[in-house]
Design a protein around this nucleic acid. Sequence first.
DNA 1: CGCGTGATTGAACGATTTCAAAAGATGTGG
DNA 2: CCACATCTTTTGAAATCGTTCAATCACGCG
Lengths: 255, 255
Amino acid sequence: MGTRGASGSKAGNRDGNIGPTVSGAAKILPCGRCPVRPLAVCAALSPDQLGALAKIVRTLRYAAHETVFHEADEADSLFIITSGVASVSKYLPNGRRQVAGFLYPSDFFGLAVAGCYANSVSAVTDLTVCHFVRTQFEALLYAFPKLEMSVLGQSSHELAEAQEQMLLLGRKSALERLASFLLMISGRVRRNGQSDSPLWLPMNRSDIGDYLGLSTETTSRGFGRLEQIGAIQRLRDARVELLDRGMLQDISEGV
Amino acid sequence: MGTRGASGSKAGNRDGNIGPTVSGAAKILPCGRCPVRPLAVCAALSPDQLGALAKIVRTLRYAAHETVFHEADEADSLFIITSGVASVSKYLPNGRRQVAGFLYPSDFFGLAVAGCYANSVSAVTDLTVCHFVRTQFEALLYAFPKLEMSVLGQSSHELAEAQEQMLLLGRKSALERLASFLLMISGRVRRNGQSDSPLWLPMNRSDIGDYLGLSTETTSRGFGRLEQIGAIQRLRDARVELLDRGMLQDISEGV
DNA sequence: CGCGTGATTGAACGATTTCAAAAGATGTGG
DNA sequence: CCACATCTTTTGAAATCGTTCAATCACGCG
């Protein structure tokens, strides 16, 4: 049962590095000119409230495959992604991994229960995040109800996505899962105003398999089949063209 | 692939009844004497804030198998369970069902995205709920930051549980899923201060199967096997004695 | 007592995993 | 710029776990 997931475990946290790697430090934009602000929780803030947020934010960078935090770590930080892609995963003691989701720019993460993170987050690509000290951020939540509403809104949204994923994991076939995955990532990329033609899949087969509850082999065969029936075309550099979205949609819903 | 889940669909919404059935109207306690208050989001409120909440609450009752709301319904209400058990489910067009969770007294539900419910909720047993008009409840969220923090806290908790469930659905074997389920329900019942010895499972095999991503047959066989190895004992009236929690724990983690 | 529903059990089938190997990519150093 | 080593992806074949189909059992009720 998914023992192969253990390899995913290794891939997701290859070297055990924790903590940001400040490398190739590019321009750090002030909140006022942040490209993801219109999409992120900070969209709820007025200019002066944004100033209060800007005072407590720190920009961190992680290289691909580095870990942002581990499950059960003390949860003293909150994050918003400004560039790159990250994965959220949970592990079984025997190493099997489940990827609970992928995070894209504007996504907020780090909410915890009982003072500890409930999952591990690691960088799929090189990653830039806004970092907040939890206590400072929570003070702002109290001060700015609109910000808290926004966080609650994103949290509800994430819960709805989680339930959609449960439906996928519990009741969809391998091909249905893969079709759902492609449409989901496509939608996520589009919402960020980026092109999904071709669609870039920065996560490897192991990440995708661990997300869909499949082995890497079945995942790979799924790509092959979708290509065979003309729903997609695999390109080089982890890129895919979604040739027939209607077909993908039908497959994803088990029609 | 889980076609049998369709039967669960029928069970969860047997007669298509929507709307509360006010039957056997028992005593309705004021918020001040509500038995679930210490556990629910309302625990965050001061006595006078509780008065404001009491002004907008209405008690509703549903008979077992009635539907509280359907996925995609306009989300104009929020609820807190005061007695009984409910299920949260999602459906595929072909009728396959995934139960995303079970709700127990003190659980808050009805959060929505984009104005619509993202799932269906129906009564597993006879059910009593506190009903709030969304707009009125949201006004209270703005007025009482502690209430909103409490809702956000429950929402985070629910998200963590959803991720745990993804791990179960994506990476656990049938027996591991069933052991996890029993321990989870046991924990939920205990948190409410009720006895879990024996443990009452008000949901039928179809509900459990749809929750665990299994067929009713595999679910039933799982119970049989757990009994065979001495981990549990099946009693009459949908009751189970958890004889060896250590064994269940080990099984649930795939050890 | 017979009926209807839900739970259990049995046997055959099938989708996905597992194991194994080949093919493609990526990166390093000479 | 190429050769080599490593890692990822793909492909093939066998094994496995869970589903499906079908029958039996258990319980509650008229």
